[in-house]
Design a protein around this nucleic acid. Structure first.
Length: 779
DNA sequence: CCGTCTACCATTTTT
DNA sequence: TGGTAGACGG
């Protein structure tokens, strides 16, 4: 969704410009007249049809790079300006918060400030959270409910499994949890689980208790957000249901191909009154099957809405000809597709480079060279991206980039919010907002150590489960007849006093100040300071960064006019996507192909194009459907590139500590010959381009690859020998130039001693930073 | 009750 | 390979 200004490669003469008469639709609202409203935006015929469609269901098949975001933006604008629909009666559901922000921003430019703030724009989860804050009563929650992330959810499941005396090895929490989520996504409660096996019977019990535990903790998981609101919206009689069904005059959905069943049901309910449901998507880009996305929903939309108007956007404005041709080759073999033909009026441009590498280091070296060439021809670093199928591939590339001092950012991984100290602080803050949140209580009750041990916590949980209440609410009962010693009791009381004190303070303390108060009163900061190790210093730094992010949130709130609340911040943190963390700093981006969805770059390097890696295969054979999804994923990857695309495959790769020979991906064989050139990354690479349909993707096709799944290991003993050492800090002293992964090059101003030295350095564009020496390298 | 060590685990993609 | 959960010793 980084579509920004006019499409890059569109030639004016090839654009179908709408007849002049049509522009009356875009007459600006009175307060915008004379403020630079673009009077003749270039839209082609189908785009205009989608934008001006007045009422009733609308299905837009939007091919890759076909101007989808423009269509949504202008459609919303058209509804506001031409049909005078009040902004608060238009709901637009996007896939990420970033996409929502961009849509808002573009509309702001068209309509002005006030109107945009009243629009409903957000992800399914964010929108539902907002509804639930309002209708919490109807689903048995308090307004202050918490949103549990994956690890919180797992903690709940583990606790439930133990309470039920079930074997965690036979029922791994992870598997159980994914089954529960699958049930929820199909709209089934615990009682509706179909019993096909003893596993299902156990699952039903666990699901039941899991749900009860969430309710007791005044918490929801991600699926609950949707499911609760969907149920409310479908409720035929209730006031809430009626309100939800008539609230919006228009509902628009982006990336509809990745919608799951309960999301779809929710949409249908929300649009029930007017039937003004506009869905935009591309079945060729459906890549979230594992998360419940169901391509059949977009493919079958016409069955559910026979009166739907269907528009197909087939002209690609993003990529040059060879890239579009390559993309079409990759997607063509896909089993069942909505018929459509993507085309471009752009020139052919550079052919797609298909590059053979010896191994992943060879590949990384190629990546680095290619990036340097791009930078050499003045390509904006922000317009360069490296894609991989799985995160585990990123490390080697990162090392190579660091070696050449190329600043980069890794999108996703979301490591920051997974750090213990970050989760601890957030845990306290969530507890302040919602003391009943058991997962948070258990997390922080003894952090820093305050003498509340296993036994006390165990007792607390037992009593809580017995009363069907949250642990926090069970403290009184435990004190009365929990059989605890007086020391344990007084410590428990002290903890509660601590939390109550914080809660009291929270009523008139801004969020960032609350964070500092927590750090102080809980002794968390002192404990870390006392520790005084490199690690504790790094933790303090992370905590400061978290506080900084709260300050940032507060500043943004001033812009949007929404009050900055602790709850608002916590909700935001819970619902961020990987790309939401993408910063607009001048450096190249590394990300998984999933993370690249909706983005575009001038130059893209797609790595790891080998069988087993892409298409990825874990245990289990290849289900045709899963293979199809991998193919669509490859299609997404290829279509992100505007002008230059290189696709790299390595003959040998080490992943998860295992080195194997891998055959080139079968998808390479689908690239039309006219659109590609073959190269070798180095002399260590196999002969380039020696594959055709017979050779690619098949173990017997002339590649020295062990049979898939044979488990054969081929380890190169010299492999790790010359990786750069990471802990060499000896050469750093004031005045020297150093390199940091995020900040790029800087000058050392001083060194603070400690268990591990901290370097004070000034970075261009980032100012003075204090950084542990181990994170720096000499430039 | 605390922290450290070890052995074991699995090992995609993420709201 | 690296993270995590559980056991063990202090």
């Amino acid at each position: 969704m980084t579509v920004t200004e006019a499409p890059r490669n569109c030639r004016p003469d090839s654009l179908k410009i709408a007849p002049a008469g049509d522009w009356r639709y875009y007459s600006p609202p009175p307060d915008r007249i004379g403020m630079g409203f673009p009077m003749a935006p270039e839209l082609n015929e189908p785009q205009i049809e989608a934008v001006t469609h007045a009422s009733g269901p609308l299905l837009v098949f939007a091919g890759a790079g076909s101007g989808k975001t423009r269509v949504i933006t202008y459609r919303v604008f058209h509804l506001l300006a031409e049909h005078q629909v009040p902004p608060y009666r238009i709901l637009t559901v996007t896939f990420t918060n970033k996409a929502a922000g961009e849509l808002r921003e573009r509309l702001r430019r068209l309509t002005g400030e006030g109107v945009t703030n009243d629009l409903w724009v957000g992800t399914f989860h964010a929108v539902c959270a907002r509804f639930l804050r309002r209708y919490h009563d109807a689903v048995g929650l308090e307004r202050s409910f918490s949103i549990y992330d994956e690890s919180d959810q797992r903690a709940v499941v583990t606790r439930v499994l133990r309470e039920l005396g079930l074997d965690e090895r036979r029922l791994p929490p992870k598997i159980v949890l994914s089954r529960i989520h699958a049930e929820k996504r199909e709209g089934r409660g615990p009682d509706a689980v179909e019993l096909d096996s003893t596993f299902d019977a156990a699952l039903r019990d666990v699901y039941q208790r899991y749900q009860a535990a969430l309710v007791a903790a005044n918490a929801v998981d991600f699926e609950d957000l949707i499911l609760h609101v969907m149920r409310l919206a479908e409720e035929p009689e209730g006031i809430v249901g009626r309100e939800l069904r008539s609230r919006f005059a228009h509902v628009l959905v982006d990336e509809f191909q990745d919608t799951n069943l309960i999301q779809y049901r929710l949409l249908r309910a929300l649009a029930a009154t007017t039937q003004n449901l506009c869905v935009v998507g591309d079945d060729d880009q459906s890549i979230y099957r594992w998360r419940g996305a169901d391509v059949r929903l977009i493919r079958g939309f016409r069955r559910d809405f026979p009166q739907a108007t269907v528009v197909k956007l087939e002209q690609n404005y993003r990529s040059t000809g060879h890239i579009v041709t390559a993309a079409l080759g990759v997607i063509a073999p896909s089993a069942t597709r909505e018929p459509k033909r993507l085309w471009t009026a752009a020139e052919a441009g550079a052919p797609v480079r298909v590059v053979a590498a010896g191994d992943e280091r060879d590949e990384a070296a190629f990546v680095v060279r290619t990036i340097q060439q791009e930078l050499g021809r003045n390509t904006d670093a922000r317009q360069i991206a490296v894609f991989y199928r799985i995160h585990a591939q990123s490390r080697v590339i990162e090392e190579a980039l660091r070696g050449e001092r190329i600043p980069y950012q890794v999108i996703g991984g979301m490591k920051f919010f997974e750090r213990a100290e970050v989760k601890d602080l957030l845990g306290y803050l969530r507890l302040v907002d919602n003391p009943r949140s058991d997962a948070d209580l258990m997390r922080v009750i003894n952090v820093p150590a305050r003498g509340i041990g296993q036994k006390t916590v165990q007792r607390l949980l037992e009593v809580a489960t017995g009363r069907g209440s949250a642990a926090y609410d069970a403290i009184d009962a435990v004190l009365r007849d929990g059989g605890l010693g007086s020391a344990a009791k007084s410590k428990l009381v002290a903890f509660r006093d601590l939390v109550e004190g914080l809660r009291h303070a929270a009523t008139d303390t801004p969020p960032h100040a609350m964070a500092r108060l927590v750090l102080e009163r809980t002794g968390y900061r002192d404990a870390l300071r006392e520790e005084d190790t490199a690690e504790s210093d790094a933790r303090l730094e992370n905590i400061e960064e978290l506080v900084g992010s709260i300050v940032e949130y507060e500043a943004e709130s001033v812009d949007t006019g929404e009050p900055a609340t602790l709850r608002g911040y916590l909700e935001r943190v819970s619902l961020v996507a990987a790309v939401d963390g993408m910063k607009d700093v001048p450096c190249i981006s590394l990300m998984t192909v999933h993370g690249a969805k909706g983005l575009e770059f001038t130059s893209v390097i797609l790595t790891g194009m080998e069988e087993e890696v892409f298409p990825y295969r874990g245990v289990g054979g290849d289900h045709p459907e899963e293979l199809d999804e991998e193919r669509r994923l490859a299609y997404v990857a290829v279509t992100r590139a505007r002008e230059r695309l290189a696709i790299v495959y390595a003959a040998q790769r080490t992943l998860f500590g295992q080195t194997r020979y891998l055959a080139p991906s079968r998808f390479l064989a689908d690239l039309p010959r006219s659109a590609v050139v073959h190269e070798r990354a180095s002399a260590r690479a196999p002969i380039a381009g020696r594959f055709d349909r017979g050779a690619v993707g098949l173990a017997d096709g002339g590649c020295r690859s062990p049979a898939p799944g044979s488990g054969e290991r081929i380890v190169d003993p010299e492999f790790f020998d010359d990786l750069p050492p990471t802990d060499d800090t000896s050469g750093i002293r004031p005045g020297r130039r150093v390199f940091h992964r995020r900040f790029g090059e800087g000058t050392v101003e001083g060194i603070e001693s400690g268990a591990k030295p901290i370097v004070v350095a000034r970075f261009e564009g980032f100012g003075v930073r204090k950084i542990l020496a181990e994170f720096l390298e000499l430039a």
